[in-house]
Each structure stands twice: as structure tokens, then as C-alpha cells.
Design a protein around this nucleic acid. Structure first.
Length: 567
RNA sequence: CGGGGCGUAGCGCAGCCUGGUAGCGCACCUGCCUUGGGCGCAGGGGGUCGGGCGUUCAAAUCGCCCCGCCCCGACCA
């Protein structure tokens, strides 16, 4: 295509509100424009890139036997009421009414619709397995859209759903997706990692996330450099570091001592001269309406995800100050497990086997020393703490690293949740009616583009991988006043097209600097510069990523690009 | 929803405190010039100063209300 005819509105300066690199560059390079908070228009270049990403996704999904469909974005409330998610999704769901006052919503995900199709049509185990997918807009009323295309209210998702007769079949569908996702992200040129994840509001038993390491991301994952264990921080388990000081020996009795004004772990540590690892942190929580005292080692943080899972609770919150006083008789800062009879007590495993620790006394401005779990109070032990960098790997003991990441894909084993709530059953070989076991699998299309920009950019702009760049090569005559350059550039451009390369001819009447800057900014992987060396029959072939440059004969330029682009 | 910041030409910003003709750079248009990294010169177009109400002879500027956007937090597949 001829650049002079295209709409590629590049900017010298990034809009003030863009903070993360991918947002700044996508706007500056004329890929996207914002319509409203978390709502973006994808202009010509973005659309070309997204179409390429979607094509890769399609090819790999089709390769595992998945069948593409397109479901509605507009859903009746009844469907979501059946699964129970009409209420579960809360304010995150866009809701509207039709002219008759009937409730509708915009689809945030499509388990309900897919399940409703399946239950209407699937009758026999002989029809299984099935994998159905679509690439479609999702709508989520995010509390806080941010970071350009990374967290938005309307976005493209490839979502697929598997239907199997039994757990073994689901394993197979899950593995197929896992492999397909690897191929998709490999082909898109991303460096990514696969981590264990928790299932959240989707429900289900097993789940993995595909993550791209980036400071622009919002998820934290821990990773073991030694054995490869990796998990979302919400889910990660670890060996805690050893307490800094050994516990006092013996069957000592809890003993109150005055701690005036010392409320935080740090203040008590400073006051007693003992490390934070000697203290029990007491957090009063409410899980599905029931009061719970959660105990952690002083230096550890509660993982709310793990806590909710341990409680089997769907809604958890910290207790209000008046609740704490009612249940324990003291304010936050002096709370502890000894004598806490009105609450269920659960403790992190790092406290199991510890002796004679310090805890709040349930009396304002007092703490207890010599508190021992199992002797001075009874608690259930669970993994409740958030892993931290430097903890030991649960598998091999090596120190864990913490990385910030962008989630680009997520696969779930749903189990029977939707089949049961929505009545999706088939007859098995024995003629018995059994529920179908499901999986659901998502890829954020725009996040692939954003993550690629985050991962591959420099001071001049983006350097997109060949597979997802809007064009593979741009042919740039340096001096558009020179007919010979124009002619050679046009020939090379045509030769590239003849080889099936997505080529762009920069035929604009601009100074060379402008053309170079623009080409770098929008991130075309290869540039053929037609300039002075044309007199010797040579042009320059420049790779955007790394800026390596080579002189090649005019006649070889297109084939050379083709060769390098295939690498 | 809590905290903070911002809203003046397409983009980046000044002007506001101390009320009195709306400015700068880039971009855009015309002409000349130039042609290997956002070139130069000359001329030109473009503004409900986010919106409403109020104060005032007079409001971008002061007051009140509202809206929008961004960041932090809460929340989140």
C-alpha cells in the first residue's frame, strides 16, 4: 500500500494521560484512539495487527479441532440468573433494559450462552467431545480501566469451551488448549511463562495463566529459577524463611505485659526488642457473615484468596472496629487468639510447631508472651500467607523470585458447575443421564499486541515481531524528488508484494528524517532504504529490532526480506 | 467507592494567584527552499478556555454545583 494514501496519524508527543509505554506508543504511532475511559477505537494499523493475531489464534484453535462460532454480545438476564452469576458479577456487568423493561446484559464471558446451546442440542456421549470457540467483544465495567489497552471495558477475547464426558476427556481438552496456547504465543513472538492460577469467579479445579513479564502488568507471579515452579502470587505456595530467633523452650504459661500505645507488629517488635517473626499477627475477618480470627507470623501477609478458599467463602472482608471489640473485647493492635471463644480460629502453617510466641492479649495496650498454638488455643492450620520473594520453593527449596506480569491467556477446568446449574446432561454408554464436564479458555487479543509492544520497543518506538506487525516491510525512497529512487522503490515494493509480503511504500513527499522516524515509530520489522547507493545498484535493508543494516543489490532486496522475515 | 491530579486549537503546554483584546511549540494550509534521521524562510486557517449557575461594568481567571480523563487504593475474569 502507498503510505501517502493511508490514514496513519502519528504524533510527536504522547498524550499526557498515557503512562505505560504500550499506551503511549500505540497512540503516538496512530494505532488507537481513546473514545472514553477504557474504550478504544482501533485504527488502520491496530486493526491489521489484530487481524493477524486473530488469524494465528484461529489456525491454532482449528488445529486442535475447535470449531469457530459467533455468539451474541447481548444476553437475557434469565440465562445469568440460572447460573447464579447475575448477582455474582455485581457491578462488573453492564446491564440494560429493553423497551418492555426486560433485563439484559452485555456478555462478560460466554459460559452461560455456550452451555445453553449445548444443553439444547447435546444428547449423547457419542457427540462428545466438543470444543467450541469464538473471537468476540467482551464487556466488563471495570472499576478502574487503565494502562491503554491493558485494562479496558470492551475488548476482544478468544474464548473457547470444551464439553467432555468425563475428567479424563477434560484433561485431554485442557492439554490441547495448553499446547495450542503455547503455539499461539510462540508464533506471536512473545516471551511468556505459564503459571498455576486460582480459578476465581469462574469456579473449577485447575487453572493456568499465560503471562508476559512486564512492569506494566498488574499480576504478580512467583517463579523458581531452579526447578521452574511458577504460580500466580494469589495461589503460590512457598517455604517460609526460618524465624529470625529460636522460640523459648518449655511449657510456659501465657503472661500479659503492658505495651502502651504499641499497636503494629513493628511497634511491638521495637518495644520488646524481639524480631517480628516472634509475633502472631491476628486479623479479624468476616467470611460469608461468620467471624474468623486469622493468625499469621508477624512478618507475613494474609492472602485473601487463600483465606477465602480455606473458608470456602465467597465473600470475605475485614471486621469493623466495633465487631472486633464485641467479639474480642479490645481494639485492633491488641487482639490475639487466647480466650477468643466467639470466633473460629485458623492459623497459617508457618505457626504450626511454634512455641511461646507474642500475641495480643485482647485487652487494650496489653500483649501476651509465651503463647503456644495447640496448648493455649486451638486452631485449624491452613496455608494462608502470601509468598514473598526469597521464600523457598515448595518443590526444591531454591529462593523464589517475584515478577510483575501481564495476563494474556487463562485456561480453566470448570468441572460440572455450569452443567449442573444449567442442566446440561447426556446419556452415557450405559444409558444413564450424566452431566457434561466443561472447560473454558480465554485469550486477550489486544493484550497480545500491548504485551508485544511492552516487550519490544526502544526510544524510537515499537519493534513488533514479524508475525503481528501491520506490515512486514516498508520501502523508503530517501529523496522523493529523484525519479530513479522513486522508480526503484516502486519496483522493490512490487517485488515484495509478488513474494506475498505485506509491504508498504513510503511515497510521501517528506524529508527522509520524517519517514525514518515514522517507520521506526510504527514498528515495521524491515525497511528497505532506497538512497544514494542506488547509483551502485545497492539499497539498504534495515531490521527494526536491533537496527542492524546491510547493503543488498536492488534485485535481491525483496527475496532478502522474505528470507529474513521467515526466520 | 475513598485519596490525589488534570481539563485552554489535533498533540504538548503557558496564561488563572493579582478579573480587562486568548498565547507559545509541534501538527495543518499556501508559496519558496531543502532532501540520509521530525530542515529552513514567509504568509495563513483553526478556540462553546469541559458544562451550568452565580458574583462583577467586565470571568479562561473569583465562588458554588455538575461532567469527563488520569494516577494511587479498594475491587477484579
Amino acid at each position: 500500500m502507498h503510505w501517502s494514501k493511508l490514514f496513519i496519524p502519528t504524533l510527536r508527543e504522547a498524550p499526557a494521560e498515557a503512562e505505560v509505554v504500550s499506551h503511549q506508543l500505540l497512540v503516538r504511532a496512530g494505532y488507537i484512539r481513546q473514545l472514553s475511559a477504557g474504550i478504544y477505537s482501533y485504527l488502520f494499523l491496530a486493526q491489521r495487527s489484530l487481524l493477524k493475531i486473530m488469524q494465528i489464534v484461529r489456525e491454532e484453535m482449528d488445529a486442535i479441532g475447535a470449531q469457530e462460532m459467533l455468539l451474541p454480545a447481548l444476553h437475557p438476564a434469565e440465562l445469568w440468573q440460572e447460573s447464579g452469576r447475575w448477582t455474582v458479577m455485581g457491578d462488573n456487568m453492564f446491564r440494560l433494559k429493553d423497551r418492555f423493561g426486560r433485563d439484559l446484559c452485555l456478555g462478560m464471558t460466554h459460559e452461560e450462552v455456550m452451555t445453553s446451546i449445548a444443553r439444547g442440542e447435546l444428547r449423547s456421549y457419542k457427540q462428545l467431545p466438543q470444543i467450541w470457540y469464538q473471537i468476540q467483544n467482551k464487556f466488563r465495567d471495570e472499576p478502574r480501566p487503565k494502562s491503554g489497552l491493558l485494562r479496558v471495558r470492551q475488548f476482544l477475547m478468544k474464548d473457547s469451551y470444551s464439553f467432555d464426558l468425563d475428567a479424563e476427556g477434560l484433561d485431554d481438552s485442557y492439554q490441547k488448549h495448553h499446547q495450542a496456547y503455547r503455539r499461539i504465543f510462540d508464533r506471536c513472538g512473545l516471551n511468556y511463562l505459564v503459571v498455576e492460577a486460582h480459578s476465581g469467579a469462574m469456579g473449577g479445579s485447575q487453572s493456568h495463566e499465560f503471562m508476559v513479564a512486564s512492569d506494566a502488568g498488574e499480576d504478580f507471579v512467583v517463579q523458581c529459577g531452579s526447578c521452574g515452579y511458577s504460580a500466580n502470587l494469589e495461589k503460590a505456595v512457598s517455604q517460609p524463611r526460618a524465624p529470625e530467633l529460636a522460640d523459648p523452650e518449655g511449657d510456659l504459661t501465657p503472661e500479659p505485659f503492658h505495651t502502651p500505645g504499641r499497636k503494629t507488629i513493628a511497634e511491638v517488635a521495637e518495644f520488646t526488642g524481639l524480631p517480628e517473626t516472634c509475633q502472631m499477627k491476628s486479623l479479624v475477618m468476616v467470611a460469608d457473615g461468620h467471624p474468623v480470627l486469622a493468625l499469621l507470623r508477624g512478618d507475613h501477609q494474609l492472602s485473601e484468596t487463600k483465606f477465602a478458599a480455606a473458608m470456602g467463602a465467597s465473600e470475605i472482608r475485614p471486621a469493623h472496629p466495633e465487631e472486633m471489640r464485641r467479639w474480642l473485647g479490645a481494639d485492633a493492635g491488641s487482639l490475639g487468639p487466647v480466650g477468643a471463644s466467639k470466633l473460629r480460629i485458623i492459623a497459617d502453617e508457618a505457626l504450626n510447631g511454634r512455641r511461646n510466641m507474642i500475641a495480643g492479649a485482647n485487652r487494650d495496650d496489653y500483649h501476651l508472651r509465651h503463647v503456644t498454638p495447640g496448648e493455649d488455643f486451638v486452631a485449624e492450620f491452613h496455608d494462608l500467607r502470601q509468598a514473598v520473594a526469597g521464600d523457598g520453593c515448595i518443590n526444591c527449596g531454591a529462593p523464589l523470585e517475584l515478577r510483575k506480569t501481564i495476563e494474556i491467556g487463562h485456561i480453566f477446568k470448570l468441572g460440572y458447575k455450569y452443567a449442573e446449574s444449567m442442566g446440561l446432561r447426556v446419556l452415557n454408554a450405559a444409558g444413564e443421564e450424566v452431566p457434561v464436564i466443561m472447560g473454558s479458555y480465554g485469550i486477550g487479543i489486544e493484550r497480545i499486541l500491548s504485551a508485544a509492544v511492552e516487550q519490544r520497543h526502544d526510544a524510537d518506538g515499537m519493534a513488533l515481531p514479524v508475525a503481528i506487525a501491520p506490515f512486514v516491510v516498508v520501502v523508503t525512497p530517501v529523496n522523493s524528488a529523484e525519479a530513479a529512487q522513486r522508480r526503484a522503490a516502486e519496483e522493490i515494493y512490487q517485488a515484495c508484494r509478488a513474494l506475498g509480503l505485506d509491504a508498504l511504500l513510503d511515497d510521501r513527499d517528506e524529508r527522509p528524517g520524517v519517514k525514518f522516524k515514522d517507520a521506526d515509530l510504527i514498528g515495521i520489522p524491515f525497511r528497505v532504504t532506497v538512497g544514494k547507493k542506488l547509483a551502485q545498484g545497492k539499497v539498504e535493508l534495515v531490521e527494526r529490532h536491533g537496527k542492524a543494516s546491510a547493503d543488498v543489490p536492488v534485485a535481491d532486496a525483496a527475496t532478502e526480506v522474505k528470507k529474513r522475515a521467515a526466520m
